[in-house]
């Protein structure tokens, strides 16, 4: 196996009380990894801990074999980029300017863009198919468009790892599918690792290379097929009306 981009060692996450313990993950280049689990299980906390927004209770997160705390904030910005669901503060930013901000870790003290920077911006916008939105102000974009522009920004940051917090949340089915297909395409074409949390388990099962499943007992990482045969999905929801159908590979409802 290659050296993972990011891995954790006996990570324990949470604020004062541990939400999840013994979390051992490994994120490899070129993989699309989905993080799933019920509401309130700690998906966001895990992502926040992996991206050093929040400190772990114990254990550590390693980037390229080095503890994440050994990196300066500028170095970290070249290792991973994030896409959040939070609303942007009011501003006049256009889609292009928003993507251009992704180049900040590479620009000089006043933020002047070089030709390489502009090239990366153009490339990122082409890959995510938002080139025609370039001059639009960010607040005029639809949720789906803004999500793609945010992904373009993360791409422009040119990091081996991109972490997305529930990127499919406010989207309808068509946009969900197209967004996840886009993420899949990115991992194949750029050899980046893309980690995203989601509630769309069916779609994630179809498209992702690996899944991280959080349940009250433990946090497991494996390929979707492996997880299915291990019967992991039965443990996610504690609800007799929702059952995982191994044959179909998706959740079905019973006795509603």
């Amino acid at each position: 196996m290659n050296q993972p981009i990011l891995h954790t060692q006996d990570l324990q996450i949470g604020y004062k009380n541990a939400i999840a313990s013994n979390v051992n993950l490994s994120l490899q280049p070129g993989k699309l990894v989905a993080l799933i689990g019920a509401n309130g299980i700690g998906k966001s906390t895990l992502l926040r801990t992996l991206t050093k927004i929040q400190p772990p209770i114990s254990g550590d997160v390693y980037l390229g074999g080095k503890p994440i705390s050994d990196y300066s904030s500028a170095e970290r910005a070249r290792q991973f980029s994030i896409v959040l669901t939070e609303k942007l503060p009011p501003s006049n930013l256009t889609a292009w300017e928003l993507v251009a901000l992704g180049r900040q870790p590479y620009t000089d003290w006043i933020g002047k863009l070089s030709d390489v920077d502009r090239q990366q911006i153009t490339q990122a916008m082409a890959l995510t198919q938002v080139t025609d939105l370039a001059d639009k102000r960010h607040f005029t974009l639809s949720d789906g468009q803004l999500q793609k522009v945010s992904i373009a920004r993360a791409l422009a940051q040119d990091t081996p790892l991109i972490v997305l917090d529930e990127p499919t949340t406010h989207l309808d089915l068509v946009h969900k599918v197209s967004l996840l297909r886009l993420l899949k395409k990115l991992t194949l074409e750029t050899q980046k690792c893309v980690l995203f949390s989601t509630h769309d388990i069916d779609l994630a099962l179809e498209l992702s290379d690996e899944m991280i499943v959080m349940s009250p007992q433990k946090t497991i990482q494996a390929a979707p097929s492996q997880l299915i045969s291990d019967g992991v999905f039965d443990t996610i929801f504690k609800d007799e009306h929702i059952v995982f159908d191994v044959g179909k590979g998706k959740f079905i409802f019973r006795n509603l």
Binding site: T51, I53, S73, A74, E75, R76, A77, R78, F80, S81, I82, L84, E86, L88, P89, S91, L93, L98, L101, G102, Q104, P105, T107, W109, I110, G111, Q157
Partner: peptide
């Protein structure tokens, strides 16, 4: 003037700014 670049990043909010390497 020293804060011009971080101010641009802050247009995305605190969390994004931090992820872009802003102190």
């Amino acid at each position: 003037i020293a804060t011009i670049k971080p101010l641009d990043a802050l247009l995305l909010g605190e969390n994004y700014a931090k992820s872009l390497g802003i102190r």
